[in-house]
Each structure stands twice: as structure tokens, then as C-alpha cells.
């Protein structure tokens, strides 16, 4: 019973924080989806220097913890440039997710048989048109499950922004738990909020998968 009243009493506070979490997640997922595409494109470039640059970026990001990246952006860069906590979070999460998304895109593009590309080219399509009409649709269908998975991780990773003072869900749970000295209740409650977001997101991804699945042969 106390759990329920804890949940109801703190709902206004948590819903406010939920909105911040959703904004963080939306910004970073949308931006990462775009930046990841650019990175994947560079990663598959004809020029070795460009390929290596993109590969270097991906290794750097994947090789360091997200919390380190956020701390560098928020606390580390403060001596050079001051970025508001929320935007520092968006920049860090975008840079982080983009590296993973780029690799997912690349795996999708490379999974399309060369015959398909050759067929497109021999029909007189330009490289760009082939990418747009032949490769992308097939690649997207293949990568959708991994992409959905990455976005789910991205949603949960927004919690790391708590440590650079963004008052999102997890930081709010920390504040409430410290105020009321009941860590179990409020960390479980905040877990439920994340669970609901993730379940909704996975439902959306599944629906999209089914819709694209119509083109299965």
C-alpha cells in the first residue's frame, strides 16, 4: 500500500523528469540516426583516409565509457567552452550512439548481395539511385531489429546524464531516495518508468518490423 502511495505522491515529480528523459532520448536518437548514416557512408568510402577517419572515430567512441565521454564534455571542456547540462547530454549521447548506429547501418549495407547492386547499375541507375532504391530498403529491413535494440539502449543510457546534473528520471530518483531514505522503493519506481518506455518502444519496433516484413520473399 505504501508503494502505491509512494508512486502516486511522487508522480508529478517523476513525470516532469520523464519529459526530460524523453527529450534527451528523442534528440539523441534522431541525431544519431542521421550522424550514424553519414559515418557509415564515410566508413564505406572509396578513399582510405576517409575510411580510417570514420573507423578511428568509431573505435574511440566504442572504446571509452559513455560516462567518461559525458564528463569530458560537461566538466572537462568547461575550461574552454561552457555547454548547458542538457545539451552536453544530447551531444554526448548522440556522439556515442552514432558510432554504434553507423556499424549497424554498415552491416546492413554489406548484407545486400553485390548482385543486387550490379543489377541496379546495369539497369542504368546512378550509384546514388541504387543506394536509395535498391540497397537502403533491403538493408533497413535487415538492420531494423539491431537498430531497435540500439535505440532501447539509448533510452536507458540517458540515465547517465544524471551525473552531469541533468534532472532526468534517474537523478530525480536519487534526489527523492536521498530525501526520504527509502532507496529500494524509489529505484524500483524509476525502474518501472524506464520499463514502460522501453516496452512501448519495442512494441513500435515490432510493428514496424511486421510492416516491412510484407516484402519478405
Amino acid at each position: 500500500m505504501e508503494w502505491f502511495s509512494d508512486f502516486v505522491d511522487t508522480a508529478p515529480t517523476f513525470l516532469q523528469a520523464l519529459w526530460i528523459t524523453l527529450q534527451l532520448a528523442l534528440w539523441s536518437i534522431v541525431l544519431a540516426a542521421v550522424l550514424g548514416g553519414v559515418l557509415a557512408f564515410l566508413r564505406l568510402s572509396r578513399f582510405q583516409a576517409v575510411r580510417m577517419l570514420a573507423a578511428g572515430y568509431i573505435s574511440l567512441i566504442r572504446g571509452t565509457p559513455l560516462v567518461t565521454q559525458l564528463f569530458i564534455i560537461y566538466f572537462g571542456l568547461a575550461s574552454i567552452i561552457t555547454i548547458e547540462a542538457f545539451w552536453a547530454g544530447v551531444i554526448g549521447l548522440t556522439a556515442h550512439n552514432a558510432a554504434y548506429v553507423a556499424e549497424i547501418y554498415r552491416s546492413g549495407i554489406q548484407s545486400v548481395p553485390t548482385g543486387q547492386i550490379e543489377a541496379g547499375r546495369s539497369l542504368g541507375m546512378s550509384k546514388w539511385t541504387t543506394l536509395r532504391l535498391v540497397i537502403s530498403p533491403q538493408a533497413l529491413r535487415t538492420v531494423l531489429p539491431s537498430l531497435g535494440n540500439q535505440f532501447i539502449i539509448a533510452v536507458k543510457d540517458t540515465s547517465v546524464a544524471a551525473f552531469i546534473t541533468v534532472a532526468e528520471l534517474f537523478r530525480t530518483a536519487q534526489i527523492v531516495a536521498a530525501e526520504k531514505f527509502r532507496p529500494l522503493e524509489f529505484y524500483v519506481i524509476v525502474g518501472v518508468y524506464y520499463l514502460v518506455i522501453v516496452l512501448l518502444l519495442s512494441g513500435a519496433v515490432r510493428a514496424l518490423e511486421q510492416r516491412l516484413g510484407r516484402y519478405n520473399v
Partner: peptide
């Protein structure tokens, strides 16, 4: 705004 420590809070004042 909540910081992990007193020191973190203080060093964000000059920024």
C-alpha cells in the same frame, strides 16, 4: 541543480 559533490557544485560557479 544537483551535483555529485560539493566540489563539483563549486567548480561550476565560475563557468
Amino acid at each position: 541543480k544537483t551535483y555529485e559533490s560539493d566540489v563539483d557544485a563549486l567548480i561550476d560557479v565560475p563557468t
